[in-house]
Structures are given as structure tokens and as C-alpha cells.
Amino acid sequence: MLNSSIGKKLLMALAGLFLCVFLVVHLGINLCLLRDDGGEWFRAAAGFMSSNKIIKVFEVFLFGGLILHIIYGIFIEIKNRISRPISYNKTYASQTSYFSKYMIHTGMIIFAFLGLHLINFYFVKLGWTPAPQGIVAVEDKHDFYNMAINLFQNPVYSFVYIGFMIFLGFHLHHAFQSAFQTLGVNHTKYNTLIKATGTIYSIAIALGFSVIPVYFLFFWGK
């Protein structure tokens, strides 16, 4: 099955949908930052995520899925480029969903962000990179709450972050409905629902994540 084009795409889609679920969870935790409770909820949520055994298993899946999604994405892109060795002079004036044409590009941008993001947070957790200055571990745990707040108070970081989130939204906008199509879910009764959900989902994710830096830049502590 995985030798075939459709099989590979199925895996891409499943991994992608899994990542979509993860994004919701991640957003949920991040939104805890907005609660003016000195990081109580955020820490509790983060603590749960890093200690629960089931979540640990999911983490393996998450990284597996992520790597799979990226590797297959790149593989398919290369394959697709080989499939048209000579490109057109005038390209692609056809009516298509706009973002669908740039999935590899938005994907790579998100990947770049992910690198930054991992260095900032995940690598700290693993102890590969030191925690930024002034951040002290609380009860032997890294203080991601203050790390996040510090970062978001940096306007450059925040705007870059928001920029990345917009691209994430673009990526998700096509990705969501595309995954369903790849899974074979396409029915005149439900297509509008899937598309609308995809649009709402992609906007919600991009907006949801962007609200946080905006809050810390302009409203926090005022």
C-alpha cells in the first residue's frame, strides 16, 4: 500500500490530521497564558502534558507523525516536480483553491518556525539549550510560563510569530479539507460542512495563537 501514490498520501493526510488535533491541544494550553493567574493553569496543563504516561506515548506519535508528514511532503514535492520536467511559460491560470498551490512553501515556512520554536522551548526542556537569562526553574521544572511571556514582550519576536501563524493558517486552510478528500470523504451533503469547518479551524488556529502575543504586547500588565 505504501508503495503507491495514494497510500503515501493517505499517510500524509492521517499524520496531518493528527497534527491538527495536536494544534488544538497546544492552543488550549497556550490560551491559559491569557489567564491572569501567575501561570497556575498554564503550569498545570504543561505539567500534565510532560508527566502523563499516555501523553508521552502520544509525543512519540506526534514527532513520528511530524517527521513523516515532512518527509513525505518533500518526497511528494520532488516526485511532482519530476513529473513535469519542462514547466510552462504561462503557469496555472486555472481556478483552484489558492493556497493549495503553495503547500510546500507554507509548509517549509512553518518548518522554519518550528525550528525556532523548538530551540526556544523544547530544547530547553531537553536541556540541549540553556534557559534564557533571568528564567529560574521552579520546583525543578523549567519556567515556560515566564519564558513565553518574556518572548512575547519582544515585539520583533511577536510579529515574526504572528507572521508565522498566518502562514500556518494558510497551510491549514487547504490541508484540512484536502485531508478529508484524500481519505475519501467527499459527499455533496457534507462538503460544505467540511470546507466551512476547515476555514473556521484554520482561522481559529491562526487567530488563537496570534491573540497571545498581541495580548502580551499591548494589554498585559496595563
Binding site: 501514490s5 503515501k8 498520501k9 511528494i76 516526485k79 511532482n80 519530476i82 513529473s83 513535469r84 496555472y92 486555472s94 481556478q95 483552484t96 483553491s97 493549495s100 498551490k101 503547500m103 487547504h174 479539507q177 484536502s178 478528500q181 484524500t182
Partner: peptide
């Protein structure tokens, strides 16, 4: 035969 993979662009 060397056709590419569908990425559901709808073109």
C-alpha cells in the same frame, strides 16, 4: 508511468 501525486488543488 510517471504521473505526479494529487494534492487536491482542484485544477
Amino acid at each position: 508511468l510517471g504521473f505526479g501525486y494529487c494534492s487536491n488543488t482542484g485544477a
